[in-house]
Design a protein around this nucleic acid. Structure first.
Lengths: 330, 330
DNA sequence: TCGGGGAATGATAGCGCTTGCATGTATTCC
DNA sequence: GGAATACATGCAAGCGCTATCATTCCCCGA
């Protein structure tokens, strides 16, 4: 065996067929005759051939790779979605190029450039894009998929839900539960703000008293709870429910409250967002808003698949909805 | 402008140089004359050229991509390491192909094949490999980096620490703190087992009484705490310290204990592992073992960089050590 | 018996880039 | 002042694959 990596050519010679046939076999075994297929299979095994997808991608101008861009990894409410996404993509024969954007527009642009320069089939992203980057993406043949939100005018398609509707429903829920003095702990990001604003608008509509607010850095996480709780304590009157931007934050608030001697939910109710696994496992279990991350992943992948076949997905906005899950904490 | 993507050729014509020079500029702007560089820069901006790394990778047989393989994403103690890894790699101009292996050897093999077929420069992995996959990797020119452990005979190089030493030190720490009846909650994985066995051996050496044990599924996480705690309660005598396989698990146990009316650490002490961000933010703060995830990331990347220059890293085993961080919970 | 049609395969021209070698031009040294 | 040296650039041969088109071979119906 030659020192270099075996190529299609090596396999072809060994199987006494042309490289074209081996290529066909590799990409769709069904199109070659059974006995030829068998010879090729053997030749591949004997040579230890591993396809070179750089060459394949160059020739076919499709890379079977998709770029997934997320703001953060740690304690993020995306984790479940991302895990599902990566697994499902992998199952669909697509490899994942992961990028962590943070809150930086430059980093995002760089990551998108990287993705495009690898000729990814699609970019799945969950953060905001600046004008220049939008243009970059629009020009490219890659399918752009925004997840976790439903912008009015998506670049490619969007799979998510209405954060405004979520904010509104949370307000209604809080009212229906009899809470009177909500406190919102909001992450400093566009989507969280949208939920907050919708909450406030609805609250003013159907209840009285102005909710109090805290803002925490993005990503909203466990550790921010301490400061938010301290802020609440300094309020003239203690809130009776705190609405958090994520389940991790909610968990943190439960812990802070308990450690200050408050009972949850009797003295202070807590709501989370995202229905991360921990929300159901905490004591008390945390009332939260469930978003079907696996469905988002599935829809995104379905869109990619149909895009590859040339048939554009029929809807550009896919609303997966959300669901308030009432548990013990509120 | 042509409808198709602009190529090196387009840029070259526009800048009145050869494609070779443009290529040089793109890869290392310093090697072309300043005024030529300027012309090329303009031409790139005007055409909106985006390099095709599939072609580049094919020609140069280096892809500037590395595969990162991890078992899980959610609540994982790897999260911080992975986040650091992805960010640092990205900064170093390397893109990340992410694979989630779960506990499946087939999936791992498939992901490694995928990685090799894209001719990644390196594979960073933190799980076990079966014999066939090891062979696959060994043959390939990609650098293989095992992280979070130090196997006796690494395939490529390994960056991690001795789990046996960690287990031993944890035992010593527990003894020094005066605990007498430890309970171990161990994840069902090789590394956790190694720590456990070393703990047991050391405990038998320097203390008396046999520690009690629970095993939880991999990955060890928050939700497993409930069952582990229930098991402890059924013990003839309640342990005075519980040693957990991860900080998430430890957090879960603190919550379970508190919700059962026990005080931590007075009635039950709790130790975690990994020093995830939450460990320091929990109430009580959690005593744990710190592993410098960022350093693991840095060392791995340094190894890749030097491997690319042809100089193999001088040590195949890089021990980043660990450190017990005594906080409130134990 | 012969032609038509389909299935399986082969030949080959790129895909867009990198890189060793050749060439040309400016700089340096004695 | 001429040779030696360094520097900037061009030329062109691939890198390993895919996809188009052409070819061969068989089977089948008229």
């Amino acid at each position: 065996m030659p020192a270099r990596n075996p190529t299609l050519e090596d396999v072809a010679q060994r199987a006494r067929v042309s490289t074209a046939t081996v290529s066909r076999f590799v990409n769709n075994a069904a199109v070659v005759a059974p006995d030829t297929a068998e010879r090729i299979r053997e030749a591949i095994a004997e040579t230890g051939y591993i396809p070179n997808m750089l060459a394949g991608g160059l020739a076919s101008s499709k890379s079977r790779m998709v770029s997934v861009l997320i703001p953060h990894l740690s304690d993020s409410m995306f984790n479940d979605t991302i895990e599902a996404m990566v697994e499902d993509l992998s199952t669909a024969g697509l490899n994942v190029m992961l990028g962590i954007t943070g809150v930086s527009a430059e980093r995002t642009e760089q990551l998108i450039r990287d993705a495009l320069s690898r000729r990814v089939d699609a970019v799945i992203s969950s953060g905001p894009l600046n004008a220049e980057t939008r243009e970059l993406v629009r020009r490219s043949p890659a399918l752009f998929i925004q997840i976790w939100e439903l912008p009015a005018d998506p670049i490619g398609i969007a799979v998510g839900f209405s954060h405004a509707a979520a904010g509104r429903d949370i307000a209604r829920f809080a009212v229906s539960r009899g809470y009177r003095r909500p406190h919102l702990v909001t992450a400093d990001g566009a989507r969280a703000m949208e939920r907050r604003d919708a909450f406030l608008a609805e609250w003013r509509e159907i209840a009285s008293g102005e909710p109090s607010l805290s803002t925490v850095d993005i990503p909203s996480r466990f550790g921010h709870a301490r400061r938010a709780f301290a802020e609440m304590r300094r309020l003239p009157q203690m809130p009776d429910v705190v609405i958090c931007g994520s389940d991790y934050l909610a968990m943190g608030l439960v812990i802070e409250a308990q450690s200050a001697g408050l009972r949850v939910p009797d003295d202070l109710a807590v709501m989370g967002f995202g229905n991360s696994a921990i929300a159901g496992e905490m004591r008390p279990t945390i009332t939260t808003v469930d978003v079907d991350g696996r469905r988002i992943a599935r829809e995104a992948i379905a869109a990619i698949t149909s895009h590859q076949k040339g048939t554009l997905p029929d809807q550009r906005l896919i609303d997966v909805g959300f669901r308030i899950i009432a548990r013990e904490s509120a």
